[in-house]
């Protein structure tokens, strides 16, 4: 088991190094003087320029610069924002819980709707139910989610007034961040109505972000289910006289879940990319909005650090899914 895990980690290291190289190159590929790019200044007096050149190490040969960059990363130094003068890693860690909370709720929404939809379509294969479900899944899968967000705001926030338009919580509440998860923090703070307000703010963004994963999960569940329902043991169960619902939910679902779980794990990339759009629409203070704002502010150290941190996260989650898959399924663990 240990050797399996180590082998997986060894495969990931070159990928991670490559991503650092990509992030490093980013600053040097931006047209213009890297000192000006890193300092965010247009006019700069020569003395200050020279000191900045030295301080940022930009007078060194590229490979030395890269080496220093790597060393800094290992010490947790992901650069400093030009705009706020805060370390990038600190900004990331403050904003990340908001994105995580949104993504988790989106995933829960996607599973709650996607799994039953896929099961329903599989058990009613070829009927109108199947066609409607899969048609909706195709629509969800093709959805430009930035538009979907606008439409839902137009419908539920503007016309019906059910949900707020943007943000994480009403301004009247001042919730001290404990965990960074608004839903938990509002409960801890004990303020009346705060939790309700936070939940209200979360509903639409979670639906928008969860739409594509939901469609993917529904499609995957359906095809995995169809595969399993064809197996002999299902016929045996039926012959034993078990009810249809019991066969589907207890016997078939357990085996069909395997590929579905993998797909759920692989959705992390979709979620993070979607978070960029969803957070922009709903002014959700997470890392997606942070990244886009930094690009428009030309805060390149944040862009560089943020991209590296997000890539690191995707790599780690994929690694985790890989390892978990090996833990669940010995056939994969012992392959080669």
């Amino acid at each position: 088991m240990l050797s399996f895990i180590l082998r997986r980690i060894a495969v990931v290291i070159p990928t991670f190094l490559g991503v650092t190289l990509l992030a490093f190159a980013l600053i040097h590929m931006i047209p213009g003087d890297p000192v000006l790019v890193m300092m965010g200044e247009r006019q700069i007096d020569p003395e200050f320029y020279a000191s900045a050149l030295k301080r940022l190490g930009l007078d060194q040969p590229l490979y030395v610069q890269y080496w220093h960059y790597l060393l800094n990363l290992l010490h947790g130094d992901f650069g400093t924002s030009i705009v706020s003068n805060e370390p990038v890693i600190r900004e990331f860690l403050t904003l990340f819980p908001a994105t995580l909370e949104l993504s988790l709720c989106a995933m829960i929404f996607a599973c709650l709707l996607g799994l039953p939809a896929g099961m329903l379509a599989a058990t009613r294969r070829g009927t109108i139910v199947d066609h409607v479900t899969m048609g909706s899944a195709l629509t969800g899968y093709s959805m430009p989610i930035f538009w979907w967000g606008l439409i839902l705001i137009m419908l539920f926030s503007v016309s019906l007034g059910w949900t707020p338009v943007s943000g994480r919580i009403s301004l009247e509440y001042d919730i001290p961040p404990v965990t960074g998860f608004m839903l938990i923090d509002t409960l801890l703070s004990g303020e009346e109505g705060a939790f309700k307000s936070a939940a209200h703010h979360l509903i639409l963004p979670a639906i928008v972000l969860g739409t594509i994963p939901m469609a993917v999960i529904a499609r995957m569940t359906r095809s995995a289910m169809l595969e399993v329902l064809r197996e002999d043991y299902i016929r045996t169960a039926r012959a034993k006289g078990l009810s249809r619902g019991r066969i589907v939910i207890v016997h078939a679902l357990r085996n069909a879940l395997m590929p579905v779980v993998t797909v759920i794990g692989l959705q992390i990339g979709t979620l993070l990319a979607g978070a960029v759009l969803t957070e922009t629409i709903f002014s959700w203070p997470g890392i997606g909005k942070w990244l886009i704002d930094s690009i428009s502010r030309r805060d390149y150290p944040v862009v560089q650090g943020g991209i590296l941190l997000i890539a690191t996260m995707v790599i780690s989650v994929n690694l985790l899914v890989d390892i978990l898959y090996g833990v669940i399924n010995p056939r994969i663990r012992h392959a080669r």
Binding site: F16, I30, L272, I315
Partner: peptide
């Protein structure tokens, strides 16, 4: 293939955002 793995480490929209951040 390793180079491709690196590119796949970033979600496509984010990588595109990064490229546009560089190119304008």
């Amino acid at each position: 293939m390793r180079a491709m793995d690196i590119m796949l480490a970033l979600p496509s929209l984010l990588l595109a955002v990064a490229v546009v951040a560089v190119l304008g």
